[in-house]
Structure formats: structure tokens, C-alpha cells
Amino acid sequence: MNNPLYQKNIISIPDLSRSDLELILQTAQSLKKTPQPELLKNKVVASCFFEASTRTRLSFETAVQRLGGSVIGFDSGGNTSLAQKGETLADSVKVISSYADAFFMRHPQEGAARLASEFTSIPVINGGDGSNQHPTQTLLDLFTIYETQSRLDNLNIAFVGDLKYGRTVHSLAQALSLFNCNFYFISPEALAMPDYITEELNERGINFSLHNSIEEVVDDLDILYMTRVQKERFDETEYQHMKSAFLLNAGMLSNAKVNLKVLHPLPRIDEIDIDVDDTPYAYYFQQAQNGVFARQALLALLLTNHFQANA
């Protein structure tokens, strides 16, 4: 059976249907259980980081190599012809994609991956375009939720921290809105979820509520998705006054549901106390590891038409 993602681009979460997402998650689960070290044999994947990134690049390049493919590319835009000679991104993409079978890219400007996909016929995977989208992060988040809860429907999911500027939480909320979950948005008022997201949720009939602290809702949660409230967005006194409402420690989890998992896109600073690491609720390091499987799943689906997930 043909897979609907074969030779497609992965640019933005709203481009993906519920069945696309389910296919990716099943494929990730299958690849985690049954490695396929020969699947991308003789395939070359371009890994083009016009902006530096540690975890996303290493995770992606590991995914290619675990499937037996080879990687070409660069890890920052500074040494490229684009930066040094003023070449357009469109021209760079045309040339690089003529060498490779797929094009994974991060770029500091919003819309770069969409534009790149219009100048090549090979699949483009967006590894982050400015403040816009980071779909592979969302897919690894979804995979981790699916893995730990055995479903994506009817979950109670809290998002904590900077919900205004955090592209990770925006994309994840958009993706989960295809499943019937309850959302709890916990943030300082100044960093609340933007209107365009809450409007989308309203249009889809998704239940959500706004809260001032983690403790208001923590006992009801299946997933607690933490992000950092950035100190620099507040004056010092204001920050000191409100920060404790958005920091998590092990004591706050004493009445949590047994299936609760705490996730975080990392890096964390102080928003999750290290005493949470030793609880059964901590799952953020496994979440980071799942990035490799989510990216393997995309590569398998975009580059092979015959791969069958056997989760």
C-alpha cells in the first residue's frame, strides 16, 4: 500500500491530517521497537543548518545514520555561500538538493522551509524556521505522549510557562486539537496563549482553561508540558514575585495521577527542580531520545514507499 507521505514535505503541523500524524507515530513506535539499519542504504540526506542548533541537528543526523543513510551539510549559516557571497536561499536549495534525496533545514527566518520546498522536488523537512514552526519537535512530543499514555484522545494536558512566544507549545496545541483533549494553560498573564491559537481551539470545540499556577490543576493531569518563563521578559521584582507559580518540584506531585508524565522540550534552567528527575513522572530525557525515532519515522515515510510499520 502506498503511504500518503511518500515524497511529501514536512513544513508545518497544520499541513498534516490526523491520519498523517497517526501514521508517523506508528512508524516511530515500530522503528523504536525494530531498528531498520539498512532502510536508507544509498540515500544521501542534506542537513542544512543556516542557524546553529545542537539537539535538533544531532538527533536528526543520528536518525539518518541509524537508518543506514549518509549525511551531507553544514552546522551554521556563517560559512555558506549564502552568508558569504549573498546567494539567495532559493539558489542554495536548488544546488544542494541536486546532491541529496531529502533536505532537512533550520533557518532563522520564518517561512524559509516553505520557500525551500518550492525550489526543489525532493522532500523538505523543516527543522525550525525562526519563530514559526518546528514540526519535528511537535512530532516527538506527540510520539512521547502516545508512548506514555497509549492514546492521544481524551487526555488532560497542561502547558506551563511562556505560552505567548513558545512555538513548541503553539504547534503541539494545534496538533493535539485534532484529538479530543482538555487543555490547561498555565502562564503569567503577559505570556498567555495567543488569540490565534485559542480562536482555533474554539473553532474546533476544544475545552481549555487558563490558570495562574501549576498546583491548581496538577492532580488532574495526564501530561504536564513545562517550558521556561524567561526572566528577561519581566523586571526583577515582578519576576521574583510570580516565578514560583511556574516552577515544578517533586513535592507538588505528591497527589499526581500514576500515569502523569512531565515533559519539557529542553534545555531546562530552573523550571523543573532536579528532584523531579528521580520521580516516575519525569520523562523529558526519554522525550529527547524519542526525537531520533520521530525523525527516523519521517525519513522512512518520505523516502520509502514500501516501509510498513509493525507496531
Binding site: 539567495t88 536561499l89 532559493a90 527566518q109 520564518e110 516553505r114 520557500l115 524556521d129
Partner: peptide
């Protein structure tokens, strides 16, 4: 209106 949008400096 987004000054960081890629459409400002590419042939599209």
C-alpha cells in the same frame, strides 16, 4: 508586515 519573513529577500 513581518520583517523577519523570508519573502522579503528571496525571488518569490
Amino acid at each position: 508586515p513581518n520583517s523577519n519573513c523570508i519573502s522579503h529577500n528571496e525571488p518569490v
